[in-house]
Write a protein that binds this DNA or RNA. Structure first.
Lengths: 331, 331
DNA sequence: CTGTTAGCGCATTCAC
DNA sequence: GTGAATGCGCTAACAG
């Protein structure tokens, strides 16, 4: 392995000079800089970054904690993070936790043992959480909820849900079903709050029978659709708390011979790439996934740079995407 | 920062003993091991892995080179890789190249500067390729094609395509359209070869007019479907070289009032998660994505361990998934 | 079984 | 502008 010492010898200079040639070439005489460059070229020298990181006490890398890498929303956030990290010369370590807290622990460990300089967590914080925040671990939460006790970037889940439901009300719906996430899921809780607020502002009574618990999976949507279809009368619109469940629900209603949107309107949440390809295309809420990633990375780098961020909570705007899965109810 | 020296002092032992307590505790006397553990606990000591890596000359991490992280096939492969890496105590560095060769170069650089011990490349090798193989860079190719000049894990693209087309022929189709990838794409080339072989074995003449060039995108499928629909007579079945294009084609045919599979059969390739949810569900080829990931990671670790692998090319079995998008042609 | 010693490759003092 | 010397935190001889 060729080291900085070999280069120094080849160039007839000291290792200090070679080191400087790499980190601050402007402090060298033109003459010696040339010599160093020549020697590096000749010996095909590549600095040992492991040594550099050790010496500089920085891993130049960050960890992304993601519950499930096989999820297009998350990968889009990751893209945003990576763009910013790369610009900063940082590597991105992937931490697919598969919703396991022990796995999460393992990855947080990377920061505690200095293999990474900070962490971005892609799941909502909840009150029983012991993973983060943690002293000595620089962390940012991305796409979480309100009241996250460490720096965060997210959308306004309550407002977004409210907007969707208000739209359904505005085109004439009043019996509006909901398929939620797990009752304890912070996103589900916030989106349900938005639903209730929209109803309340329109003076529509909240009917708990119209609220079915799901788990953000396709099957939950399918299953809930069967229950809704059997109600008498069935709701005229369904607000699904993510696109995945909306897809399942659409499938379920269609199997029962109900037409979308003529017989029942469906809305989702996330705007997955496939959602525009469904039959009919899905009305949904688009989260600025890539922007969330970029912003959270920028925030993390402020922490890493010890630049005490002026703002530690960013709420990014969503976009209501009107497509063919919603229409006025039949009279 | 608390170091191994602090622990040694606290325990009244040498740093070497502390080091051994961490790496090979069985060589210590019970007594001293206890002392060390106590001191570690008391001081909340965490070893500096940056130092350890430097000293041991190993980054304990591998890079995944992926053309597009927002692609479910790739993320599934990545899951497989991560499972194995984690078992080995390695971290996974994400290299989303966005199909840019200069980006790819950057990530390969991580190995050359010893920030990573090896690399897994998730795209087919082609003959003009300068990225890999490269001396001193341990690399494995995953989900590529035949004749990759370095260790690889893949499926039999020719055989898989042939199987699909043979099936279509077996249920009575003979005018079978194809939507390919870009002409220069190695996967597209191999799958087309499979298509031709199937025709040839059934003594059906190859008609180049039935082969439309796509680029693996939804739009390519949509566009090709328009051209097929205008042919006189149109083909009775379409072999799409990936699911994404099949989804686009289905949409296009349906918009023109053609029913699937009554008027036209459609097949895909990949078996994306959504493919089973389409209307009708898509007949396709399932690649063992997670297995491809696991196998390629295992192969890379053999290289890293200098265990000269007995086998450097693995061809994994695919699964033909028969769903509702195919049927016999109308008489 | 344990301690002493040396050094991994690099960046940073501090003289000159 | 440059070089000599030092040490980051850890592990691996080697000797005892």
């Amino acid at each position: 392995m060729t080291t900085i010492r070999d280069v120094a010898k080849e160039a007839g200079l000291s290792t200090a000079t070679v080191s400087r040639a790499l980190s601050s070439p402007e402090t060298l005489s033109k003459e010696n800089l040339k010599k160093v460059q020549f020697a590096i070229e000749k010996l095909q020298y590549r600095p040992n970054m492991l040594s550099q990181k050790f010496r500089n006490k920085t891993a130049k890398s960050i960890v992304i904690l993601v519950p499930n890498i096989a999820n297009l929303f998350f990968t889009t956030v990751i893209r945003g993070i990576e763009t910013v990290a790369q610009r900063r010369g940082f590597s991105v370590l992937l931490g697919d936790t598969r919703d396991s807290s022990s796995q999460e622990e393992e990855y947080i460990n990377l920061v505690e043992t200095r293999q990474a300089d900070g962490i971005i967590q892609l799941r909502p914080y909840n009150d029983f959480d012991s993973a983060l925040p943690r002293s000595q671990v620089l962390a940012v939460n991305a796409s979480g909820c309100e009241n996250t006790p460490y720096p965060s970037v997210r959308i306004d889940n309550i407002g977004a849900a409210k907007e969707v439901v208000k739209y359904l009300i505005s085109i004439g719906h009043s019996r509006i079903g909901v398929i939620t996430g797990l009752k304890t899921n912070p996103h589900a809780i916030e989106r349900l709050e938005g639903y209730r607020k929209a109803l309340s502002e329109a003076a529509i009574t909240y009917d708990p029978k119209l609220v079915l618990e799901g788990d953000f999976s396709y099957w939950a949507g399918l299953n809930a659709s069967a229950q809704f279809a059997n109600m008498d009368p069935p709701p005229t619109a369904i607000f699904c708390m993510n696109d995945q469940m909306a897809i399942g629900a659409m499938k379920g209603f269609k199997e029962r011979g109900m037409r979308i949107p003529q017989d029942i309107s469906i809305t989702g949440f996330d705007d997955l790439e496939v959602s525009r390809y469904l039959d009919p295309p899905l009305t949904t809420v688009a989260q600025p996934a890539e922007k969330i990633g970029e912003k959270s990375a920028e925030l993390l780098f402020q922490l890493i740079d010890k630049l005490d961020p002026s703002q530690t909570e960013y709420v990014l705007p969503i976009e209501f995407v009107l497509r063919g899965s919603t229409a006025a109810p039949r009279k």
